[in-house]
């Protein structure tokens, strides 16, 4: 009979576990990215605070791009489908990803939502994250480009207060610039704050209500 070595009762087992909690999400994000690349879908992840203009950005881009591309959107929200209706009225397919109580989307929820759309009939996919300037930065979803929307109504210090999310961004929008004077916010200073943290990011000043700056955003995203 083969000898079996067993632990004694009360023995201390020292295990090199090497388990990274965040790596599971990173792996799924890579899988999402690969799947999207295989189907030639350009995916853009939109992050930003509540009310900064994330949904408005997607609406405006869809309006400008709908003749050229077939588009779909995932809309992360805690409870309602209000924003999904707003985007959906422009004739694009929208899947609401309900996070329930969570403050961010993760690669697993996106992976599930990807099964709900026809990737062969999609050229561009927008993923709107939950309104939050903190947690979404930690969870890559598998998108090609990450956009952060910040608005002047959030005050003059939003960028310096949340440096981490701006490190993740390819394009940063400074929105509601029409209200900058009333809010006593210096748009150029906000732009500089972004560039200091992330010199790689393109910064565009926008007024998404009128459509000002949308063309530049589309250009910055290479669409």
């Amino acid at each position: 009979m083969r000898e079996v070595v067993k632990a004694e009762k009360g023995e201390v087992y020292d295990i090199e576990l090497e388990a990274d909690i965040l790596k599971a999400n990173e792996r799924l994000a890579e899988e999402n990215k690969e799947l999207l690349r295989k189907h030639r879908v350009v995916t853009i992840d939109v992050m930003g605070a509540i009310g900064s203009g994330k949904t408005s950005l997607i609406e405006k881009m869809v309006q400008v791009l709908k003749e050229k591309y077939r588009m779909a959107a995932f809309k992360g929200d805690l409870t309602t489908t209000i924003d999904a209706e707003l985007i959906g009225r422009h004739g694009v397919e929208v899947v609401t990803i309900s996070t329930g109580k969570e403050c961010h989307l993760d690669a697993n929820l996106v992976r599930k939502a990807l099964q709900r759309i026809d990737l062969e009939k999609t050229d561009i996919l927008f993923i709107e994250n939950v309104g939050n300037l903190i947690c979404p930065a930690e969870f890559p979803l598998g998108s090609e480009k990450r956009v952060v929307v910040v608005s002047v109504t959030e005050g003059p210090y939003m960028v310096v207060k949340h440096p981490f999310i701006f490190m993740e961004a390819d394009v940063v929008l400074i929105n509601k610039v029409d209200l900058a004077q009333a809010m006593e916010v210096n748009v150029k200073k906000l732009q500089k704050d972004v560039q200091k943290i992330n010199p790689r990011a393109r910064v565009v000043a926008t007024n998404l209500r009128s459509g000002e700056g949308v063309k530049e955003v589309i250009e910055a995203l290479g669409l």
Binding site: E11, Y13, D14, L17
Partner: peptide, 9 residues
């Protein structure tokens, strides 16, 4: 990362 754990058996 959970690098190491010590278990008492």
């Amino acid at each position: 990362l959970i690098k190491r754990v010590k278990l008492v058996l």
